[in-house]
Design a protein around this nucleic acid. Structure first.
Lengths: 101, 101
DNA sequence: TATTCTTATCGTAAAGATACGATTGGTTTT
DNA sequence: AAAACCAATCGTATCTTTACGATAAGAATA
């Protein structure tokens, strides 16, 4: 991608909202979050059983959701328990709500 | 991208929501929609003046928003007037609302 | 008819996203 | 200590996205 030399300045909420939206921009990640919301929490292995995708692919999607702040992982040896990050979830929720009026 | 041979089946709303989210997944497109919402409608040229991006780049973002169904264009010769697609906007709004509870 | 105005599209380049298998790293169990 | 288990990361291939300038297409104006 040929980038503009100058960094475009958006209003603060604009970039935050776009970041959340981008993380939600893949059906697998939406499905993971729905699953997480229903189960409250779950392990990576559970998702590998649910989706016809390689373990590494699931892991990659989880990483993106984590980077966006929408989920968080907690070591429950030998597994990792993933849950919704409630704090950021609220922020995302309010940003979308505000955006759509 | 090496694709799975099989097409993954998601629930209907999952794909629809991901499609909307993907369209919102860029700060410029969020900013365009905010501008469109405030102004009610606008022309391509207005946006070119507002953002430090090439005309062709703006046009490409508008195309994506149009493909996602979030906006619609109307020929007002010699310009094109873009507005929010209220019908689909409502659908997107309700999908996000339902998703976040 | 020629010119101008406005926007879409084409061609292209660089970066990012998505998928996989294989490997690694850290725990737990044997 | 060895084996087994779970998940992250690495390396790789391919497709998509984002950006630009240049060109084309359409209608209005001179």
């Amino acid at each position: 991608m040929k980038r503009s030399l100058e960094h475009i300045e958006y209003k603060e909420n604009t970039e935050a909202l776009a970041r959340f939206a981008k993380a939600l921009g893949h059906p697998t990640r939406i499905a993971i979050l729905k699953h997480l919301d229903k189960q409250s929490c779950c392990f990576t292995g559970d998702l590998v059983d649910v989706f016809p995708l390689a373990q590494s692919t699931i892991s990659q999607h989880l990483k993106e959701l984590k980077n966006a702040g929408l989920i968080q992982g907690e070591l429950k040896s030998p597994k990792i328990k993933y849950c919704i990050n409630q704090e950021n979830w609220k922020i995302a929720k309010s940003l979308f709500k505000e955006f759509f009026d």
